[in-house]
Design a protein around this nucleic acid. Structure first.
Lengths: 225, 225
DNA sequence: TATGCCATACTTCCATACAAGTAAAGCCTC
DNA sequence: GAGGCTTTACTTGTATGGAAGTATGGCATA
């Protein structure tokens, strides 16, 4: 039997945090921008306390920096943090790829193919957000196919800094190239070739090594380290 | 020129968070225990607000769970979260081992040997905390030797759940065995044998796969999932 | 003009009061 | 005794006032 799904209204602080987090990740609140408890509270029409607690959560996410008695600022994108997250992603997804290549779960691979189709459509429509979301789902499906769903949840946390960079870079870089790499990965997985799958995945994720310096050079005011 | 190191007194909320976090990680505050803003505030002699904010941070760490209008509880150790963190560690440290084996930075390898010596001493003295700290330093040195210090910082966050488990299991399991595995890893690194280094590291970190179910069976009230 | 002091207008931090929700014990009713 | 209601004592959530610290512009002074 299905149990009833009871949802209680989330607290104000929770909602504010969620709202701010999304806006930061999408680049709506740019790195370095100053935000103020008073201003946000007034804009929403609530007291300062829930906003303050949302700021604390945002700081825990690494997306904001609270300087006591001075102000709160949207974190600049740490190049070191992005590269670290990238390193971890490569190591983890390389292992995931090997596992999936050996198991070859047909349904999951089909769903990955579906995502590639969606990416092509989003690319042609010029819809950056759709593309990024499908990109994430593609990689998440890999974790699912390897029976390691929780791993992707952990990676999501690490990707926080990377995501912001991606919203900047997606406009500048070739999405068709990314789609091609996804296809290569999927082809190798279907063949059950663990070595080729790992190599394709590592190549794909190393792409970022060239993108990061370019982005940092283009918008130095958005980056640190 | 060196710039002056100015330290400002950390906020009360920060200190409370730090205190609670350490106590949770060392198992002083057991999984499932109920904690209350009012009680902690009274015990320390401050108001509820900073304690409340410390609870929020603790929840962000995954070490506590705030149930609105009901109470706040120390998180039980999520088996899924531990296994996920372990999977990530294996993938990442396998890559790190390969890199270090190829570079063979003499000074770092010597420092890793020092840590093994400290672990032997701590083991004979029966000092669990010293052993765990040295164990962490050993693995951290590996990241340092690979030029990926930031990676270890990210792993630290993921290890939060694992650390609590370790304080439970270290008393039950054979520390001498762990030391031997560290030595095997170091030997392979010194030889510059990337494959052997990777294998030794993976073997070492897979040890946990047998420990986790045993611990969960021994103390089911401490675990979830 | 340059320098040091100071008032002022911010900021985050903490304390306090109250609001809203939960849970459990006690009591009443059947 | 069983079931249901009410009271009561909790819990966390929000609002508000003030404390403490910071940055800035103005002004007096040399």
């Amino acid at each position: 039997m299905d149990i009833a799904r009871i949802t209680i209204a989330p607290s104000t602080a929770f909602q504010v945090h969620d709202w701010l987090r999304k806006r930061v990740q999408q680049g709506d609140l740019p790195p370095g921008m100053r935000i103020s408890e008073t201003e946000v509270a007034a804009a929403i029409g609530i007291s300062r306390q829930p906003v303050r607690e949302a700021f604390i959560r945002l700081a825990s996410d690494g997306l904001a920096e609270v300087r006591p008695q001075r102000g709160t600022y949207i974190s600049k994108i740490s190049v070191a943090a992005v590269l670290s997250a990238r390193f971890i992603r490569e190591a983890v997804e390389a292992d995931l790829a090997r596992i999936v290549a050996q198991a070859r779960p047909a349904e999951m691979l089909d769903r990955m193919a579906d995502e590639i189709a969606r990416q092509t459509a989003a690319d042609q429509a010029g819809n950056v957000n759709d593309f990024i979301e499908s990109d994430d789902r593609f990689h998440r499906l890999l974790a699912l196919a390897a029976g390691q769903e929780a791993v992707w949840a952990d990676l999501e946390r690490l990707k926080a800094q990377m995501n912001r960079l991606r919203h900047l870079s997606m406009r500048a870089f070739d999405r068709g190239f990314i789609i091609g790499q996804h296809q290569q990965i999927l082809d190798a997985l279907r063949k059950g070739d663990a070595d080729a799958s790992e190599t394709a995945m590592r190549t794909h994720l190393r792409q970022m090594l060239t993108e990061v310096p370019q982005m940092a050079a283009a918008r130095p005011d958005y980056f640190t380290d």
